[in-house]
Structure formats: C-alpha cells, structure tokens
Design a protein around this nucleic acid. Sequence first.
DNA 1: CTGAAAGCGCTTACAG
DNA 2: CTGAAAGCGCTTACAG
Lengths: 343, 343
Amino acid sequence: MNVTGHTRGPASIRDVAAAAGVSYQTVSRVINGHPSVRQSTRERVLAVIDELGFRRNATALALARGRSRAVTVLTANTTHYGYASILQGIEEAARAAAYSVGVGVLESADEAAVTAEVRRAGDTGGGLVVIAYDPAGVRALESVPAGLPVVGVVETPASPPTGDQPWVWTDDREAAYEATRHLLSLGHGTVHYVAIPSSTRRTSARTAGWRRALKEAGAPEPRPVQGSWGPAGGHAAGLALARDPAVTAILCGNDDLALGVLRALHESGRSVPGEVSVAGFDDAPHSAYLMPSLTTVRLDFTGLGRSAFALLHGVLEESAAVAPHPVSVPELVIRESSGRPPG
Amino acid sequence: MNVTGHTRGPASIRDVAAAAGVSYQTVSRVINGHPSVRQSTRERVLAVIDELGFRRNATALALARGRSRAVTVLTANTTHYGYASILQGIEEAARAAAYSVGVGVLESADEAAVTAEVRRAGDTGGGLVVIAYDPAGVRALESVPAGLPVVGVVETPASPPTGDQPWVWTDDREAAYEATRHLLSLGHGTVHYVAIPSSTRRTSARTAGWRRALKEAGAPEPRPVQGSWGPAGGHAAGLALARDPAVTAILCGNDDLALGVLRALHESGRSVPGEVSVAGFDDAPHSAYLMPSLTTVRLDFTGLGRSAFALLHGVLEESAAVAPHPVSVPELVIRESSGRPPG
DNA sequence: CTGAAAGCGCTTACAG
DNA sequence: CTGAAAGCGCTTACAG
C-alpha cells in the first residue's frame, strides 16, 4: 500500500488489517459478523473497510469454504415464454438469497453435447437446476453425476418421485384434464390435441390429462397431432385439422401453437369459436390480446422457478429437507376462442 | 487416497501427482498443455487423470489466475423477446469460448438497487454485458466502476461513441426511419407513434428515426403516445388513437405493443389495414401469425448478443481491440397489416 | 477478544 | 524436463 492508501487492484483483508492495525483474521471475523470482536475494534475495522472500499473476493470465499453460493440453470431454451419465466423466477429467488445464477443452454439433445454441458455447469461450483421439458433437458437431468446438488423442473411425473429425486412441477396433467373437460362441457363430441414435443418417448403429462378427460366422457380419442414449440408448428397442424369438417374443438400444448392454429383456421375459412373452439396452454402475455382472445390454462412459471431455487437452496444449505411437491394449481382462463359447437 | 482410489471429494492435482509419481507442478503443466514435459510423463499423467476422473477446479483456477472466464449479463428483463434473444446470443458465443455466463436482473431503476446489482455482478469476477434499453440498464451501465470490463448493448447512439465506450447496437434509428417511410409511401398523411418506454429522458433512437422521416416528407408530427413493453400498453394507446378518425397509420415501438394496438382497433370497429395501417418493431416469432399478420422491422438480437460477447472477449483477452460498431442492418418485413389509406 | 498457522486447489516464477 | 517455494484472498480450527 502506498501513501494514498491504494494498492494495485482492489483492497484485500490484509490491506484492511494493516490500515486498521489488526491481524487479517480479525478482519475476517468482522466481515463475517463473528460475535467475539471488541466493539471498538469492530468499528475501527468497519471504518477502514468503508474508506478503502473493501469488497470480499467471492472467488476466494468459494475456494476457502469449499462451495459457492451459485446456481446454474441448464435449459434447452431461453426465449420461449415458459422457459424464460422459470429462469426469471429462479433468478429472483437466487438474488434474494445472495446467490449468483448462471445459465447454460443445451443446444442439442446429443448425448456427448449434453454431458459436456452438464460437466461445464458442474465445474462452476454450486448447484444445478435443470429444466427437463424436452429430450435435451431430460437427458441432462439424468446425467448429472451423483453428489452434485440438482433439482429438476419436470412435467407432472407419472408416479410420485422417490426421495432422492428433488423435482418440482406444476400440475399440467390436471390442467390438460380441466381444459379438455371445459371444451367437452360446451357440447363438443371430442377434442383434438396438438402436442408440444414430448420430453421423452413416453406419453407426456399433458397428453395423459387430455386422454383421461376423453375417456371419462366416453368421447372418441383422436390421434394427437405432433406440433413443435412455436407458432409455425401450430400453423401446420391447424391446416391439417381444418380439412376435417368433423373437428370442432382443439386443445394445444401451448399458446404459441394455438396462435398458429388460430391463423390456420382463419386461412381455411373456419371461424373461431363459431365453427371450431381452440384452447391453449400457459397464458402467455399475448394470449389475452389475440383475436379472438385465447382460452387457456394459466401456469405459474415464475413461481415454479422460485420453488425450484428454494428446493435447491434447502439441499445446499442442508437446512430442513424440503419434500418434492407440485407448486401452484393451474387455472383455466376462459376467453373468446372457446364456445358451443355449431348447430 | 485409499485402496479403491477414492479420496473425499473430487481428485485434485495432488491426488493425480501422487498416483502418477510426479510433482503436482508437473500435473499443472500437463493440463495446461505446457510443451516442456517429457512425452512419457505426459502420457502417464493423462492416464491417471482419466482414471481418477480429475477435473480442474474452476474456482481455484480463477483465484490463482486473478481472473475468471466468466461474463455476467445485467438486464431489466429476461422474458421479453428482444432481451431474451440477446441473452441467448451472448450465451451461445460465450459457450463457444468456454466462458460461463451469469445473469443478474435489474428489478428496479432505483439508484441504490442498481448499484447493488452492479456490485454483485462485479464481485463474481470476469466481465459484464449490460443491456441498456431502459432506465435501469442505462443507469447500470453508467455506474460500472472503472477497471471492470464491460460492454453495453445500447440504442443507436445520437453521436458516435468515444473509444472508451465499448458499445454494440443495431441501427434502430434507421429502422424506424424506414418503417415510417414505408407507411408514408403508401399514401398516409402522417404516421402516429406508440413508443416503448425510453431509456433516458432524451429522445429515443426509434423516435428520432420516425421524426426524421416525417420531417423529410413534410408530414405533420403527432405527439408520440407513451406505451409500455407489453400488449396491455399498446391496447390502451390503441384505444385512444382509435377515437381519432384522422389516424390512419400507426408505428409501434415493438411487436407486443402492436399486438395490443391491433386488438384495440378491432374492438373499436376500425379495420386493419382497410382503415388503419399498423407496423411493429422486432419481428417477434408470433408476428407473422397474427391476423392480420404484422408488418414490422426485423432486428437480429441474437447476433447482437454474439457481437456483445465478442467485443467483451476482445477486451478481456487483450487481443486486438475491436472497434465499436453497429451490428446487422434491420430489415423491413411487409405483411398484411399495412396498406393504402382509405379513400 | 485476538493472533499465528495451515489449508482450499491451482498457477507462476525460480531453481536445478 | 521437473521439483520446491510462494502466492491468489479468504476461512477454519488452535492457541493464548
């Protein structure tokens, strides 16, 4: 330290110690709020900290403590509404807990690529949250090495997860069931389904909920139409469904898909909800402003993100174990796009 | 290390050294690709590394080297299309360069809150990218302490930035100019503007471009309508504009705003583009599927994010200085929502 | 209440 | 080509 009180680079605890006339261990005690420090000493150290603009080095802290207050989110996407909102929720909760949040994008579901990303994320230190709504995410969640703290944001599991599967989800199976029942209750003979890409080879939770509602009502079960995540997939699916005059009700795996379906029906000269009813999933910000406005199921993705972090936080800080649990109950939002069938 | 080759926790370079019968410095040389290591030694060490599953501790690396391969993105939002796409672009480029990416959300534009976030982000080590499209972002960019490497993603600057302002942008002033000219060329007497919240007290780049086009055409300049980021703001603005029968063309600061305007015009019984033409900004994924599909300006946010990282990377690695520069040229996309004025 | 020591896992000169 | 030393900035026992 020179006369002006500056060293090269930011001040360290040794700089503070020297300026305050104490050992650097005492400085450590002060910044950690350790009780056994004489009041006058504490005040002197605090004053120097302020004067020198001392900031504790997070990297050194992490190395010394053996763990860092960090969470990295592994996701296949950051722009779709649901994914982006989950990330926003995680960040919000992490910030409140003074955790830093990193993000790693799973660009491909390829085994090697996923493994590499998981490793990179693990190397950062701290815990992981992986969004497992798609094959890349599911694979990432599976390939997290034991010992690395992780929580998965998953579709509604077919069976309750075991204790060592810290998962978090919103009940989309039930939500699909409710949406389908809504359409059925309006008098439709059955409901067609345009699916988002499934996370695995097995039936998705949304598909299962839709199927159950049909079964209970004794309605015929049409073959689900495979969509994508965006409106383009919905548009293609909608064009195909529009050709079948028997189709009067369509449930879509998300609101973007529904947007494409709406457009396809319009182009095909079929009115909504006059001839065909459409319902979406998610309640994205634009859905209330479409023409017609979209009947959909509101999912609390931000809350889901917050819960994911809370669960991870519990694991990392080894506080009271938090049991895996569904988060918030999805809510059916009825708007203009659904109505009674024609005739 | 015990008989099974396991120690508590992951293997360190000392574990590897012991197992390979060399000093840990030699292990360091091997993992850093230092040339002066005998081939046979290198192979032996590599074999042990593989066997023990050794992974170099990123935290220790960062501490020893004095800097970390990390970038943290400071942004007011992660869910809006533009912001989310920039983040996606940054992550993509960062991943390719083996950098980790963190994100910090600026929840408020409040001075103290912004300063705290900037500090937190700086503590993480590595560089910063701040998205300065709004007051919180602008303030964050301004309050980054000297010495902390940072690049700003900004609106088109009014004047060329100086050398010590590493900024990146897409030419939205020009884009607004082009979109306005398009509307004017269709025969509209003037073009009304629904603005996104401005980043500062001064005129935004988009507003400036719109204004210049009007001026050049000798068209009267209506007072810009203040919107928000989402469709709700556009809806409110649209309702107001719909009341004025003289309004025949509306430019919106982004596509979400345009969506709200479209809905408001529809509710007010004014047809688009028959009575009123509407144009947006961004070319968000849903814009091509609206009814009518939206005329808009396509901005390459992902590319912008990649450029931002490239610039920061240049600063951090002290390689050839990269001059600040506009990124890609926005492209006008003409769709159904714009046409000739009535009569 | 406070200081001296050892260590977190790595790198960077310094010797040989 | 390779090892012994010192250090990055902090924390955690150990002494007193």
